[in-house]
Structures are given as C-alpha cells and as structure tokens.
Design a protein around this nucleic acid. Structure first.
Length: 812
DNA sequence: TAAAGAAAGTTTTTT
DNA sequence: ACTTTCTTTA
C-alpha cells in the first residue's frame, strides 16, 4: 500500500517531512488527523521506524482513540510487534511519573494518587474552612481557578504570595490557601491535574538521566491541536525532543479556543523561532464543507483583528444556504431542531446530525425534545460515568485501599453508606490529626489503639471502617505501612502485586464488603435501582480491564480519573448533543448551532474583553466548520436563566454572517427579516461592510417580537386582547428611548389568560403607560381584583411587578 | 446521628 | 430550574 497516493501535494509534503521540526498549519477540514495518521504509518512502514519510538500527543482521549484507530486501519496489513504510543498529555505525564517521580526527591512516591477537579475542589474547600476564611467571600471555585492558573504560569506558592501581598487582602488569603493546599496534597501523596504536568516537566528538566531516557525512547514526536498548548505543555514537548528535534505539530490559530485554560497562542506563532530549520506546511484545501458554509464561517472569523488570515478553499459544491430559525423560547427551539432532524432522516435514513450549544445547561431541553421525537441521541459532556456519585464512592474506596493517606477519599466514604461516623466524629478526628500532624488514617489507628474521649459507638464504627479498607488493600496487594506522618513519607511500602486478585474482584468487594450495595438495596427506590445498575456497569468495566491484560487496579483507577465525559462520543449516533468545545475535531453532515443569542453565545463573561470576544468568535467558527452539508443557526426570543425568564437578543455573530447566504425558516417576522430590511450591504475593497442598524431598537427587539407573538395568538383564539396595534406601528409613534431588553425579564402568560376573558384591559401583550417609567409591555398578570398584579417591562427600566390598584396605569 | 425540609447559590468552555 | 448546603426535628 502506498500511503501517499490518496493525499494532495501539501498533505504529502507534511507526511514525508519526517526529520527535523515541522509546523503544519491546517485549516478546518483540511485533513489534519489524516495527515498525522499517515505520517505515523509512513514512519513505520516506509522508514522502518519502530512503533515504540513514536509518540503522538493529543488533548483528549477521544482524539487519541480516533488517531489509534486510523493508524491501525492504515497499517492493518503490517505485522507489528507493538503499537505506537498515542496518548493525551496527562496520561503521558502519569506514565512518566509512575516510573520515576521518586527521582525528584520531593517525597512523592510512585503510589501517588491523582486528584481530579472534584477532589481538588474538596481539598481547597477544607483549606479555606480550616484557615477560617469566609467561603462566601473567597469562593471555592474562584480560588481553585486562581491556584490552577498560577500553577500553569509556573508560579509557585512563594511567587504567588509575593505578588499577592500588596495587591489585596483577598489575593493574600488565596495565597495562604494555595500554601496549605500544596502542603496537604503532599501529605496525601496526591497530585492534581496541573501537578501532573508540572512534576513531569520538572522531572525531565532536573534529572538528566530521565530526560535522556525519554529522548532516546521517543525519536519521533507528533502533537495535535498545537494551538491549544499551554506553557507547561510546550516545555514538556521541548524537553522530550531536545535531542533529536524530530517534532511535528499540527494546529490552526483560528481554532484556538482554550485561552481561558492557559493555552498560549504564541506557541504556534513562534514555533519557527523556537525550533531552528522548521519546515512550515500549510494545508488550505477544505474537504469537509460546502462553499457556502466556508463563506459564512469565513465572513464571521474575518471580524477578528488578532489573526494572520488564511486562504481556505474548497472544490466542493456551493451547497445550500445556511438555514435560520427564530424560536419563541428554548423549548420551541429544541422542538424545531428535532423536527428538522426527523425530516432529514426521512430523506436519508442514516444521516448524522449534531446539535451544538455554548453551555452545558442548554442540553436538557434538547435531550427532552429528542426523547419526545423518538430520536436516538448521544450526549457528550455534563456527567461522565465516572462522575456519578456512587461510582465515585466506590473508586474512593479503592483509592483509599491503595493510598490510605488520601484524606479526600477517606472523608468521602467514611460514612457512606451511613455507619454511624457522623460529622461530629469526623471533625474531632480532623482536629486531632491536625494537632498531631498525622493523616486522618493514622489518627484513626491511634484512636483505636488508645481509646479516649470518643463514644463507644464511634469507636466500633471506626474499627469496622478500618478493617474494610485494610481488607481491600490486602486484596490489591498492599502491605500495611507502618505509621507514617507528614514529615516522613513511606516510600516503597505499598507494592501492589496485581496478580493477587482480579481488578473486578476487588471492585466487587468494594461494592459488597463496604455495605454499599446493601444500603442501596434497602432504599427500594427507582433512583437506588439506577445506582445499582451503574455499579454493575463499573464491575463490567473492571471485567473488561481484566480480560484485556496485565494491568492492575492502579491503572484502572488512573484511567477513571483521566478519562472524561468527552469519551462518551459514539460516532454512529444519529444525533449528538454537545458543547461547541467538545465538537472540536469532529464533523457532521448536519450541524445545528443553537442559542445564538447575545450574552449566551458570545457569552456575557467575555463581553468586556476584546481578546475573549475574539475567542468566542473563533468558537463560533469552530462550530460552523463542523458542518459538511447543512448548517442551521437558531436563537430563541426568551430563555430561562437561573429559573427566571429573560428576553434575549440575537447574537452579533448572526449579524456578521452575509445575510444573502441565509435562508429564513422562521414563522412570521423574525429578527432576520428586520435585519434585511434595514441593512445596506456595501462592498469595500472587495469585502462586505454592513451598516449596523440592528441594535438601535428601531428594527428589532425581543419585547416587540413577543408582543407580536401574543397578538398573533390572540387573533387565532378570537380574542380581542385589548385591541393593540402591531408593535411596529406603535413604535413608530413612540418617542420613548429604545428598549434595552437584554436585561429585562419576561414571563410567559399564565395559561388561563389565554382562555378566559380578561377582567381588565391589561392583558399580557398589551402596552401600558406608567407615570415614572413611561410606556411598557405587559408580560404577565396574577391575582384578581385589588390584588391584581402585573409584570411589565419598561424600556430602559427593565421588568417591574406592579399592583394595578396603586400603580396608576393607563392604557397606551 | 440521620432524615426531612428550607434556604441559598448556581452556569462558560475541560484534561 | 436544579442542586447543594444549612436547619429543624425524630
């Protein structure tokens, strides 16, 4: 088989440039995964490189899986002694650290525990509490993200503290939390996600023999999604490739969407400077999308200033226009999307579609709509299997068995299922642990041996708990370690001998011997039933693990920490629901981008910072370029946020699309029809320039559209509804300032107002006049008689709830 | 101590 | 709206 025949000239170039550094700038849909896979196959089959000398690094397990599959397919005729290593950054680091972390001499042992986001958050919470800070003022999440970004910047506790001291009290407090957090991680022999990168980099940097070893092992290095690498990842790559410089990175600046997580775009922009004699190859032919989709996506991303610009082209057909729908609310949006998917699948039974949204919270309505419609959907994100409470509990038992010093795991399961070790007891233990400088585990041992102060009941329960953990440890081949404390860790006392018991047996024991199953069975609820099924699923996963090989409990647990919700993606599902971030690297014949609303996409948190705004735009670009044939964009006029309904304006990104390439499928008047009427499109130096008239309030705002909606519905129901005129006519006479509706709240009408004749003229959808606020739109009425309350939105003042009797309202 | 009920905070994106 | 955390009660 010739690996080069099916490639275009640039792709071929990228595949055969195996020696020395290469920078492959690959536009959306230009075949970048293909190039990496072919390059690996080429190295093995044509250049005779041993598979174990090749390392490919990705960000997600999903991407790694895809890569492995493609390489395997290309090399299916070859007899291979082993497969090339395709790994995520984090699992690569774990691999390296499980081998050699003790060479760092900072008291971490090879049996270290990995703390995921949730574990680390719990620990930070404890730290904040124990330092006596107000959780409300400091904020667990805020603190965690501050610490995480400090770590990613390479700022240790001292550097962070030095910078914080003079800034403000809050940051100084965070610095103290950071310090305690680090100490406790250490005491627990635990590493958080950031530490995995940090320690691996330090190991390669400070221990030449380790660096040498991996340089000799990985002679060829490939990095996917290079635009999203942060400084630590860059350091890791540089160190791994120090000796041979055979490194190929693939990326696209327009698809950089992880700046918020520390991704440093200069890594890709300055690659040629960092690596001498870089060969730069551009892949600019798009094989994925229609010309129209590329045109629309290109027009949007062109609004970014921080951009080199590229010339992405395709020989694909022009295709159909981008389809647009304005929905009344999120529910209607979801139902419409579902109905369109059904239509498409009637035409082509196996066509795949993706629904992309900005935030995970949008997923629920789509899930419900798909279920109602009977579409088999696959949802990525939100809860991963390993994030379910019961699964985490069992994993915590197993983690504890392997590393009893893991106080986070201990606190998680010490009383679940309930065994009489309540809050009081745990707090007492924590106090003593702190006083003695011992871990919780060792404190328990001490308390059991020298009983004092604690109730008989608590003692018995603690003894039982300890016995359970020790037994699990025994099964996993852990030798009970002598008393350890913070100062002297105990290296090498726990050597698991994986052959003692199967992983699945240990998992079963953790479910049964802990009383976990018994407690769930006792509940006799549907929910408990579902939890039991999930635990059965965990056992199945463990059985698979046993069947597949030689790895032990440790690897099973590592896997559970490093595998994420991204990995639930099933490529053949008819419908996939996911965030735009999760869709990076994927492609679908049909793509829906939902919730294109101001404050949602682009997200309000990005509104103040132009750089973040550009990232939102790139995100939009990524979403659009996932589509092969059909692209749909939708938005809703109102949406629930924190349980309150807010009116929402269309996204500015809609406005940045060439309107002539959009087909309006909305019922009645939509934002787009207003936009068309009021926009003059000018050509300036060969580019579209549009006059921005849309947000003056004269052409469109949601309150108007909602009024329009009520009017239509009223006439359908034969209800006179107060006899108001069309929103447009009213507005023409209206001298009040333009509505600022993006912050105004809108309530849906109570159901009975639709059917029963209103007792007054102030019905939802009609306009009223208020002495102070001027003219406003009635959104909702509650109560009757003297207590009749109206919810009214006033342009410029937002929503007010008024008692009709006192408000002195007039019909307007 | 544990269960049940009330109040408060929450949503940007993720290894 | 939904989930986590605090408060009350058995």
């Amino acid at each position: 088989m010739n690996f080069l025949d099916s490639l275009n000239e640039q792709q071929r170039e990228a595949v055969i440039a195996t020696d020395g550094p290469s920078l492959i700038l690959a536009g959306a849909g230009s075949g970048k995964t293909r190039v990496i896979a072919h390059r690996i196959a080429y190295l093995i089959a044509e250049k005779g490189i041993a598979p174990w000398n090749i390392l490919a690094v990705t960000f997600t397990n999903k991407a790694a899986e895809e890569m492995r599959l493609r390489v395997q397919r290309l090399l299916r005729d070859q007899e291979l002694s082993s497969a090339p290593l395709v790994s995520t950054f984090h699992s690569l680091c774990v691999r390296i650290l499980r081998q050699d972390i003790e060479k760092l001499n900072d008291k971490y042992t090879r049996t270290f525990t990995i703390y995921d986001q949730d574990d680390s958050q719990r620990l930070i919470k404890n730290c904040i509490k124990d330092l006596g800070y107000d959780e409300k003022h400091l904020g667990v999440r805020a603190t965690q993200s501050a610490i995480s970004s400090a770590k990613n910047r390479g700022e240790d506790v001292d550097a962070f503290a030095a910078r914080a001291d003079y800034v403000d009290e809050r940051r100084a407090a965070m610095a103290r939390v950071y310090k305690l957090y680090e100490e406790r991680l250490h005491a627990n022999n635990a590493l958080d996600f950031d530490d995995l990168m940090i320690k691996a980099v330090r190991l390669l940097r400070d221990v030449p023999e380790v660096c040498e070893k991996y340089n000799n092992k990985f002679k060829y290095l490939l990095v996917d999604e290079y635009q999203d690498t942060n400084s630590l990842q860059f350091a890791l790559i540089s160190l791994l490739t120090e000796k041979q410089q055979n490194i190929a990175v693939v990326g696209d600046e327009d698809q950089s969407i992880y700046k918020w997580r520390g991704a440093d775009i200069t890594n890709i922009l300055n690659f040629e400077k960092h690596f001498a004699n870089t060969k730069t190859i551009r892949l600019e032919q798009n094989y994925r999308s229609t010309q129209t989709i590329l045109d629309v996506a290109g027009a949007v991303v062109k609004h970014n200033v921080e951009r080199k610009g590229k010339n992405l082209w395709t020989s694909n057909p022009k295709g159909e226009r981008v389809r647009y729908y304005q929905a009344f609310d999120a529910d209607a949006e979801a139902r419409w999307v579902a109905s369109k998917i059904v239509e498409h699948r009637r035409e082509q039974y196996d066509i795949r579609a993706a629904v992309l949204y900005r935030t995970n919270s949008q997923s629920r309505v789509f899930e419900e709509a798909m279920r109602r419609t009977g579409l088999a959907y696959n949802i990525v994100g939100g809860f991963s299997f390993y994030e379910r409470m019961e699964v985490r509990d069992i994993i915590a038992y197993l983690k504890l068995a392997l590393n009893p010093n893991d106080s986070i795991a201990l606190q998680r399961v010490i009383n679940s299922p309930p065994r009489g070790i309540g809050k009081q007891t745990v707090e007492e233990l924590a106090r003593r642990a702190n006083d003695f400088g011992l871990t919780l585990w060792d404190t328990i041992k001490l308390v059991i041996e020298k009983p004092d102060g604690l109730s008989m009941r608590a003692m018995t329960a603690l003894r039982g708990f300890r016995r359970i953990i020790l037994k699990l440890g025994e099964m996993a081949g852990v030798v009970e370690s002598p008393m350890s404390n913070v100062q002297s860790q105990t290296p090498n006392t726990q050597q698991p001998t994986p052959l003692d018991a199967l992983v699945s047996d240990i998992v079963k024991a953790a479910i049964l011997d802990t009383g976990y199953e018994y407690a769930l069975k006792g509940e006799k609820t549907d929910e408990a039933e579902a939890r039991l099924e999930n635990l059965q699923e965990l056992v199945n996963a463990a059985v698979d693990y046993d069947d597949n090989g030689v790895e032990g409990l440790r690897e099973f647990i590592d896997h559970s920490a490093l595998v994420s919700d991204q990995d639930q993606y099933k490529r053949d599902a008819p419908v996939t629901l996911m965030t735009v971030h999760a869709a990076k690297g994927l492609e679908f014949p049909i793509v829906f981008i939902a919730g294109l609303e101001d404050g949602l996409f682009p997200h309000s948190r990005s509104a103040t910072d132009p750089a973040e705004m550009e990232e939102e735009r790139r995100l939009c670009y990524v979403a659009m370029t996932r589509a092969e044939k059909f692209l749909y964009v939708t938005h809703a006029m109102k949406r629930r946020v924190y349980g309150e309904e807010l009116a929402s304006e269309p996204s500015q990104f809609l406005n940045e699309m060439p309107l002539e390439l959009i087909e309006d499928l909305s019922l009645g008047k939509s934002w787009l029809s207003f936009a068309r009427g009021s926009t003059t499109i000018e050509y300036e130096q060969g580019e579209y320039r549009k006059e921005k008239k849309k947000y003056t309030g004269k052409t469109y705002d949601s309150a108007d559209s909602i009024a329009e909606f009520f009017k239509q519905r009223a006439s359908q129901l034969g209800n006179t509804g107060g006899g108001f005129q069309s929103a447009k006519e009213q507005r023409a006479r209206d001298a009040s300032p333009p509505a600022r509706t993006s912050s105004s709240r809108v309530q849906s009408p109570t159901p009975d107002t639709e059917h029963q004749a209103p007792s007054s003229e102030f019905v939802p959808g009609s306009y009223v006049k208020h002495a102070k606020y001027g003219r406003g739109l009635v959104l909702r009425r509650e109560g009757a008689g003297d207590s009749l309350k109206l919810t009214v939105t006033f342009p410029g003042f937002g929503q007010k709830k008024l008692v009709q009797k006192y408000a002195g309202l007039e019909k307007a």
